Simulated assay, not measured.
Amino acid sequence: MDIRFDGRVVLVSGGAQGIGRAIAAEFRDAGACVHLADIDPAVIETAATLGAHGHVVDLSKRAASAALVNDIIAREGRIDILALAAGGVCGETSLPLDGITEENWSRIFGANLESVLWLVQAAAPLMQQAGWGRIVVVSSGAGLRPSLTGLHAYTAAKHAVVGLTKQLSVGLARYGITANSVAPGLIRSNPTTERQWQSYGEDEQGRLVDSLHTRRLGKAQDVAAAVIFFASEQANWITGQVLSVDGGRS
């Protein structure tokens, strides 16, 4: 299957590293014009390395997300695909129930859920006018079951991301816009996930790998391949779906 995006403009959130970076590289290789957005200033260097455009933005803020989309539209005249990989645990580890605060709860929801909502809200009108658009959200296995991170906010936010994606599909499909989600298992693709992996210890690491049908952890490129498919013309009658990319978790 030859998947190309020549002439398409793609915004990849969470593009500074890890899964977002891998997604951006795949779109670039398939001919798309790629814009990367991240709160991490390293996104500028990543974008330069990939031959893409980098933007340092706090996507949890509605005004900032709207300004980013408007900037891309002013520069490119269009925005066709949102590949939304921003999120994560925001520096939290092993946070117990009584350790949840308004601040750390809101920070995780902002990064994982609100970053999706505000970007889609800003980009959808132009996609509707064009009669074509793709929204692909990277959620997590934590959006389908309890999270290996043990973080209540992260699990709740990823479940909300899955629900939001399905609801977006209901309202946007009539305009030729699909909305789907890719739910990865543990991917050792950035310092945070590497710390999570190392915290398990050798025995727990072994049990986790043994629970996967493939008997191996995935790579960022495995997730990127699923995102690319959902964004393609070949997937134009697939919407409101969640695809687990987790090696077959038992």
Score class of each variant (00 low, 15 high):
8 R>K: 15
9 V>W: 04
10 V>E: 00
13 S>I: 03
13 S>A: 10
15 G>V: 07
15 G>P: 11
19 I>T: 08
20 G>C: 07
20 G>S: 07
22 A>G: 10
23 I>Y: 04
24 A>F: 05
25 A>T: 10
29 D>V: 03
34 V>H: 08
41 P>C: 08
43 V>W: 10
43 V>I: 13
45 E>G: 13
46 T>R: 02
48 A>Q: 13
50 L>N: 09
50 L>P: 06
54 G>V: 05
55 H>T: 10
58 D>W: 03
62 R>T: 14
63 A>D: 14
64 A>W: 11
71 D>K: 02
72 I>F: 10
74 A>Y: 02
75 R>C: 08
77 G>F: 10
80 D>M: 13
81 I>R: 06
82 L>M: 08
84 L>G: 11
87 G>H: 08
87 G>T: 00
89 V>E: 13
90 C>A: 13
91 G>A: 09
92 E>G: 01
93 T>Y: 12
93 T>W: 12
96 P>V: 06
96 P>Q: 04
98 D>P: 01
105 W>T: 03
108 I>W: 06
110 G>D: 10
116 V>F: 05
118 W>K: 14
120 V>Y: 01
125 P>R: 00
128 Q>D: 02
128 Q>I: 13
129 Q>R: 11
133 G>C: 12
135 I>Q: 05
138 V>P: 03
144 L>Q: 13
146 P>K: 00
147 S>E: 04
148 L>A: 09
153 A>E: 09
153 A>M: 12
159 H>G: 12
162 V>S: 08
165 T>F: 04
171 G>H: 13
171 G>W: 03
178 T>H: 12
178 T>L: 13
180 N>W: 11
182 V>Y: 15
183 A>W: 00
184 P>C: 06
184 P>R: 04
188 R>F: 04
194 E>A: 04
195 R>G: 15
196 Q>R: 07
196 Q>V: 05
199 S>F: 02
202 E>K: 14
209 V>W: 11
212 L>V: 03
212 L>E: 00
214 T>Q: 11
214 T>W: 03
214 T>K: 09
215 R>N: 09
216 R>C: 10
219 K>M: 05
220 A>C: 07
224 A>P: 11
225 A>Q: 13
227 V>Q: 04
228 I>M: 12
230 F>G: 12
231 A>Y: 00
232 S>W: 07
232 S>Q: 10
240 G>V: 07
242 V>F: 03
244 S>P: 14
246 D>A: 09
248 G>D: 04
